[in-house]
């Protein structure tokens, strides 16, 4: 599913683009992803099939669940959509972000409906059932050679972030019934209110970020961020594993090994690094942030009560939500 078309001008700005992914049950992971780098635009997206809502299995599709099919079809559909988007030479701007979201929604809905129409009608009813449900968290980006311009597009509770030397910034907002902050949502376990599905009854949210000369786009399913005791640990994992690596390849391995110690779910994280030129320069840029994270937050967590962790989070979150 993943492609990496390494040619064209955007590549001079993008240092690396990769996905780290794993599944709890081999061959049945309900996460998916796709990514592609074109001459003018880049795209990276992750999808988390909603297993409880889409647990129905389809005999005509290798007995896979609706959740599995939805996330994988969505990943492929987005790759196809992105290639057409690049070929059409559209603009990525706040003026046409609504049109872009509408176009993506139409494509996802159309492809999922094909699977729905070719399957036996489900007798199962109720508010907790959907045909082919999945979250989606996607980042479309372009550059003017000196700074990046990115559109975060999402439905559900998979998240998009921007990591800079100032720290991690959560760009997306979870589509859940009882919306707390990122710390509260670790234990709130609230119901999804919006997700990609075959009946088309969903919306794609969007948010545009611009102006950063260098940074790291991160998009992840909840298996990557929802199993820590605090949101700070997610940022620390990314930076700590980077500093413990000597190349992008070892960074990927470090990230996978790191998250496996914590997660209880399929996990997928897409990463796009831009503006640093070399891995050595990237690491150097994050030494200070790593020190701040460790001394101010991470080193204190082990002996802290839940209340003390919340106090620490309240300090951290001013930066985490700095774009709001």
């Amino acid at each position: 599913m993943a492609t990496n078309n390494k040619k064209g001008s955007l590549l001079t700005f993008v240092d690396s683009m990769f996905v780290v992914a794993g599944e709890m049950i081999e061959q049945n992971g309900e996460d998916s992803y796709s990514y592609c780098l074109g001459n003018k635009f880049g795209y990276i997206g992750v999808f988390d099939g909603c297993g409880g809502i889409g647990s129905r299995k389809y005999e005509n599709y290798d007995n896979k669940t609706g959740a599995y099919i939805a996330s994988h079809v969505s990943g492929l559909t987005m790759l196809d959509w992105f290639k057409k988007f690049c070929a059409a030479d559209y603009e990525l701007s706040s003026n046409n972000i609504k049109n872009i979201c509408d176009s993506i929604k139409d494509n996802l809905e159309r492809e999922l409906k094909i699977f729905e129409s070719s399957s036996a009608t489900a007798a199962i009813k109720g508010s907790l059932t959907k045909n082919f449900p999945t979250t989606a968290s996607m980042i479309l980006f372009t550059s003017n050679k000196t700074e990046m311009y990115a559109a975060y597009i999402w439905a559900g509770d998979s998240r998009g972030f921007l990591l800079t030397e100032d720290g991690l910034f959560q760009v997306t907002t979870d589509d859940i019934e009882i919306d707390g902050d990122a710390m509260e949502n670790l234990s709130n376990d609230s119901k999804l209110t919006n997700m990609v599905c075959a009946d088309g009854d969903f919306k794609l949210n969007s948010r545009i970020i611009s102006g950063e000369e260098k940074g790291i786009f991160v998009t992840a399913t909840d298996g990557f961020f929802a199993y820590f005791s605090t949101p700070m640990e997610f940022e620390f994992m990314i930076i700590d594993s980077m500093l413990a690596s000597d190349s992008v390849e070892t960074w990927k391995s470090q990230l996978a090994n790191y998250i496996k110690k914590y997660t209880g779910d399929d996990f997928t994280m897409g990463v796009t690094v831009y503006g640093y030129k070399t891995f050595k320069a990237l690491k150097k840029s994050y030494f200070d942030r790593h020190n701040v994270l460790y001394t101010k937050y991470i080193s204190k967590l082990a002996d802290m009560s839940d209340e003390e962790k919340v106090n620490l989070w309240n300090d951290y979150k001013k930066n985490y939500y700095r774009g709001d």
Binding site: A123, I124, K125, G126, S127, L128, T129, K191
Partner: peptide, 8 residues
């Protein structure tokens, strides 16, 4: 009702 799965 919310949070219902109905197998008729």
């Amino acid at each position: 009702w919310d949070n219902v799965i109905h197998f008729p």
